[in-house]
Design a protein around this nucleic acid. Structure first.
Lengths: 197, 197
DNA sequence: TCCACTATGTTGACAGCGTACACATGCTGG
DNA sequence: CCAGCATGTGTACGCTGTCAACATAGTGGA
């Protein structure tokens, strides 16, 4: 894959792709700037023409991950709306989708959300947007009081986000997968019940 | 504070203390091994007589932080038990204490719980032990069905842990403190209601 | 058509990091 | 009193992120 022209042509995107590959297995710590440039076949400093520093590249990778995560969450939502309470099922699906993505792609999840870095790039990360939509639908269906809507995303996001982290790095880490799934479902149900009740 | 004897005398503890100081403001990334040894007035390699590597020292610091956190959570619990449902108030206090510690000491919280590192040192981190006690009390008071007790800690911990992270590095970061407190209370109430209901 | 400009990539260097290996020091028990 | 062991030091290595100076090439105006 050796480059033949002096200029790469699409280095920025190529570096983000390399970052995706590196972080997928190793998390944020594996996003070594020199590794990314090596993988692309470019000198380390070439990265600085497109990103201010390592952190900035990592931020771009995080945004790319958030979009993938949002896509996967939508694939969970799609089959859900059949049933009596489509809106509630949809919210449940969004939550479980979030958790499943975190468990399936721990490295990516860490970069997208678990890092200490502020992800101020996007005002609203794509997965959060999916949650907001689901909550709005719950208001539209009359299941959630309109007055209770503002701020309702925080309990929801807190629960699924926290659960994802416990499942990845916390004590749920080495439970059998089925037990983890059951705990996830219970957590999501509990927070929704608590919110509506 | 120059040392006069060749041997330090209590290097292990001194390094943990240095780690506490470093991480308090800068989080896990600020725990630079060479900085810790410099601060103690010892050569970098001296640390390796007490810790296998940087990660191991960081783990010891994390345990120390967890104990401080547990102490602070107990100070929240103490004034609570007066009232009709002492057990429920106690659980609420544990949750809010967890969140308040995280907001008050973001660097420490990151090391103790937010890091990607597995904290397998202690089987049950001290703050989690406080939560388990509060849940047991809820069973004893009859408010939580005994059959629902196993695994009840996961929804609870998920909610407060997730909230703490959102408040530190997520979108709740730059809300006014009062709004954050309100959201925290709502989150804790919601998860408890969802659990009992 | 040519040429200056600008965007993009390279080379070389630096300080700082975690850590390995060999050595120095000093406490402690037989 | 001395051997052995725990503890601390010195030196060195490879790696990292990043800076400054330079090389290359695509591009728009004369």
């Amino acid at each position: 894959m050796a480059r033949v022209t002096y200029h790469h042509g699409n280095l920025r995107e190529a570096l983000v792709d390399a970052g995706l590959e590196l972080t997928r297995s190793g998390g944020a710590g594996a996003m070594v700037l020199r590794d990314a440039t090596r993988q692309v076949g470019v000198s380390p400093n070439a990265a600085y023409r497109h990103f201010a520093d390592r952190e900035s590249l990592l931020g771009a990778v995080a945004v790319a991950i958030q979009e993938r995560m949002s896509d996967r969450m939508e694939s969970y939502v799609a089959p859900a709306p059949a049933g009596q309470s489509g809106a509630r099922a949809r919210l449940t699906a969004v939550g479980l989708g979030y958790i499943d993505f975190a468990i399936a792609e721990p490295g990516w999840f860490e970069v997208a959300f678990a890092g200490t870095r502020q992800h101020s790039d996007t005002a609203t990360p794509a997965p959060l947007a999916r949650l907001l939509e689901a909550l709005d639908a719950l208001v539209a269906s009359g299941e959630l009081d309109r007055a209770a809507r503002p701020g309702a995303e925080w309990p929801c996001w807190s629960a699924v986000h926290g659960f994802a982290l416990l499942a990845l790095t916390g004590p749920l880490r080495d439970l059998p997968a089925e037990a983890v799934r059951a705990a996830a479902r219970r957590t999501v149900e509990a927070i929704i019940t608590g919110l509506l009740g």
